[in-house]
């Protein structure tokens, strides 16, 4: 049994001068929710298209569910579901007819199809409105319907390209809740792209960070956090440049940022904060509170982006 749902090696695709996907080596395990994180234009959508055999790669290898792509992409499409860049719903048809069409496409027998449509729409709270034309629906409802369509034929793996894009925070949270419930119940592997870090933190077991087509890091959130130094936050007053300089001279300190009443200190390694507090006080700073915090994924993300930026120049 293959434990990887997706594996790519040195996958590359260019559009003229643009390297949309650049030597991407990626591993997604069976059963996990994998978050593919990157800013706009970083190559997320292109990667999904390559994985589904909708675009030809220029170089590199792809294996999805143990099947080589693009050689046998039809088999991959048979066993996966997708919510792509656009929801892809027929707006002039009803919700039920949209699902019915895709149920027929996957050759589900009528009874199973109807039962499954009922099950999915009911669990998304959309069953009562199944006969309405999709064009009258809100964006959040449409995205949920598109997720139902992706899951309809019980695929082993689904691709979700920015499922919460364009949703307000409440609709996005509701969609994430439904998504998590469904995914747990169905035991399906999810490859999800997003540029929203909070979303990845809430939903994903593992993430890959991509920028300009290149993979900067991949791993579990804990691994990525460990990859980064610990952070220390002090709240107080008089965090003068003098204080900052003093801190920066310490070997344990990697970076210092004074921000009004907040002093952010990035540590090179986990270490005792007491000597640092003392140092601040000695240099005239007044400390009211001290917090230790692991880097949020956001900081990891931004740091990686910055490192990459520095590298490029």
């Amino acid at each position: 049994m293959n434990t990887f749902a997706i594996r790519t090696q040195q996958l590359t695709r260019t559009f003229g001068p643009v390297r949309a996907v650049d030597q991407l080596t990626l591993e997604v395990r069976q059963g996990e929710i994998f978050g593919f994180l990157g800013p706009n234009g970083s190559g997320k959508t292109t990667t999904i298209r390559l994985l589904l055999g909708l675009l030809q790669p220029d170089a590199g290898q792809i294996e999805v569910l143990g099947v080589p792509v693009p050689q046998r992409a039809a088999e991959v499409r048979e066993r996966t579901g997708a919510l792509l860049e656009h929801a892809g719903l027929y707006e002039r048809l009803s919700a039920a007819d949209n699902l019915d069409y895709y149920g027929r496409i996957w050759r589900m027998p009528a009874a199973e199809r109807n039962q499954r449509i009922h099950e999915l729409l009911a669990s998304l709270g959309l069953w009562e409105r199944r006969n309405e034309q999709v064009k009258t629906w809100s964006r959040g409802m449409k995205q949920k319907l598109a997720i139902a369509r992706a899951l309809l034929h019980r695929p082993q793996l689904i691709f979700l390209d920015e499922p919460t894009a364009g949703l307000d925070p409440i609709a996005a949270a509701s969609l994430r809740d439904d998504l998590r419930t469904l995914v747990e119940r169905e035991g399906v592997t999810v490859f999800l792209t997003t540029h929203n870090l909070a979303e990845a933190e809430k939903l994903c077991h593992r993430v890959g960070i991509i920028r300009q087509g290149r993979l900067l890091a991949q791993g579990s959130l804990a691994e990525l956090r460990r990859h980064e130094a610990l952070h220390l936050e002090m709240i107080g007053r008089a965090f003068t440049p003098h204080v900052v300089t003093a801190l920066q001279s310490q070997p344990a300190v990697k970076r210092v940022e004074a921000n009004g009443a907040r002093l952010l200190i990035e540590l090179a390694a986990a270490s005792d904060p007491a000597p640092l507090v003392k140092l601040v006080v000695e240099h005239g700073g007044q400390v009211e509170e001290v917090h230790r915090s692991n880097a949020s994924l956001e900081e990891v993300f931004l740091t990686l982006m910055e490192e990459e930026e520095a590298h490029a120049h």
Binding site: L52, L54, A74, R77, E78, A82, L83, L84, E85, H86, A87, G88, L89, Y90, E91, Y102, I105, W106, R149, F159
Partner: peptide
């Protein structure tokens, strides 16, 4: 134009 083509192409249909 209505952005349904790519989803159809991502389906199992030959």
């Amino acid at each position: 134009e209505r952005h349904t083509l790519e989803t159809l192409l991502a389906s199992r249909l030959p």
